[in-house]
Amino acid sequence: MQNSLAERRKARGLSQQALADELGVSRQSIISLEKGRYDPSLPLAFKLAAVFGCAIEELFTPEPE
């Protein structure tokens, strides 16, 4: 799944570790999420959307078929 996590995180001046701490996950999770190699669970997607103040579909877009 494609996402705009890295851009949004950098725009807020957050490090990967800071975002990981805020979400209560490992830094590796943020790395994998930003590379699009890890699709988050629904609760984690909601937490990410809350951190960035947007809707889940603004953060994540499905891969084109």
Binding site: L23, G24, V25, S26, Q28, S29, L33, P40, P43, L44
Partner: peptide, 12 residues
């Protein structure tokens, strides 16, 4: 140690 282990990629 992450607080929400089950949301971390290592758990998957």
């Amino acid at each position: 140690a992450p607080k929400n282990v089950e949301d971390s990629v290592e758990f998957r």
